[in-house]
Design a binder for these strands. Sequence first.
RNA 1: UCCCCGAUAGCUCAAUGGUAGAGCGAGCGGCUGUUAACCGCUAGGUUCAAGGUUCGAGUCCUUGUCGGGGAGCCA
Length: 513
Amino acid sequence: MSWLRVVDALSAKPGEKVTVKGWVRTRRDSKADGGLSFIAVHDGTCFDAIQVVARADLPNYASEVAKLGTGCSIEVDGTLAASQGKGQAVEVVAEVANGGAVRVIGWVDDPDTYPISQKRHSFEYLREVAHLRVRTNTFGAVARVRHCLAMAVHRYFHEKGFYWVHTPIITGADCEGAGQMFRVSTLDFLNIPHAGAGAGGTGVPPVRPMKDHGDKLAPWPTPGASPSPSAQCPVPRASSSIDFSQDFFGKETNLTVSGQLNVETYCCALSRVYTFGPTFRAENSNTSRHLAEFWMIEPEMAFCDLMGDSVIAEELLKYVLRAVLTERADDMAFFNERIEPGVIERLQHVIDKPFLRIDYTEAVEILRNSGKKFEYAVEWGKDLQSEHERYLTEEHFKQPVILMNYPKGIKAFYMRLNDDNKTVAAMDVLVPKIGEIIGGSQREERLEVLDRRLDEMGLHKQDYWWYRDLRRYGTVPHAGFGLGFERLILFCTGMQNIRDVIPFPRAPKQAEF
RNA sequence: UCCCCGAUAGCUCAAUGGUAGAGCGAGCGGCUGUUAACCGCUAGGUUCAAGGUUCGAGUCCUUGUCGGGGAGCCA
């Protein structure tokens, strides 16, 4: 008897003696042929379960086999045989005559309250039992597709000569302006050290406010505040006197909102690099497209302009879509049948067609001439709203489209100023269903222009000293983008809610598992 | 954070302000090479929480908590 994973057992030759191990999905009994039970066993190695035929001559048939239910874990010795029934090509027959056995490894102690009983469950409900939901068809398929996509991302970059760079999770720089941050601190919440009245002149670093935060979610208590768990915890403002020199790192630190600034340093030495890791945003976002902890892919290419940036973005997306269609055909067939009819065709369409590239200015013209009534008016210089982006990619072009060269007023300081002095070399890749899946830009490599932009936006040059050094010492044109990994999974699977494509979602008021 | 909707059996949902219900799941039995199985029986409830209106509240009002859809922020 050799132990085969279910995926291998399903393709093994009839007649082979095998052992399979896994969890019971269903059990059905029959009195035919002297009595037998059909047990669907899955082990997560592929979408399908394998059917075990347990005969009544097994010594523990009445005492154990006939009592198996959804969720029990078992080991089965048996002989692989062509199935007499429809619905599966092969099955494992366990009977005494062929040395078969069914060993129960773990019972379900109260079948009535096992959260994943054999029936349809809503995704909202399954989110409350996230430790068990991966045993379902849908979440098993999502997990395998997620892995497939991650491997394909690494493979694409590796084949293209990119190096994977592990940028820090904890950052001392609030450089990005990419959103509210989670503070990292070992200070005693109940006894926060203060710098005293003379702060600022004694080597104590000035305390800056966290960027654009709201008070409600800020992870910081007010000294002496009510111990009520619902008490709001404002973050200290610029005027506060908390002495961060006594904190673990001797300065304010947060969880990263982007590895981009760090990875640019490696880009300006290794030429082609990327990050792929967790990212944290403390925004109070309650949507099906946002998480407080998510994974992001951020390539950065030296000697590369915006057009080259967009080519990599398009190639990467098409590469990973091809991978998921060929490597996870079983799971994709399920998504195509049960989650989003037509998803396979939709992905194939994206693979086959070249992405469109148009300027922001052109997009504004299209929207203004669309004759469509939008809730928010379209106006050059204002950011496009979700409804505008959806119209462009879902209705007007009906395919992925890359918008380029946005007004500088609505984009980040590090994006390269175009010759018109009004726009920056930024791009957003818009896809149907998701909207913005990639945001990127050519970076400003000219120190004097970068400094001017920092000034314009009221940012302090000294906070960006090492970032500015890249422009002082052998600066090069370079470009990159950020791809939200979970949004990619949504796009590939047709799943609706981003909380269902990450194993344990973190969102406002949600960190149970 | 804003707008809208919701919370009743393990799950999905019913129930004019007047006795708490069904389907599925579960347990037991029957039938059957079964596979959305089928038939019968049984068990299963602090109707999200705290107040309020009322002779009487699952139902009406207030506040809160949590969930969903949309928006903003963005990936």
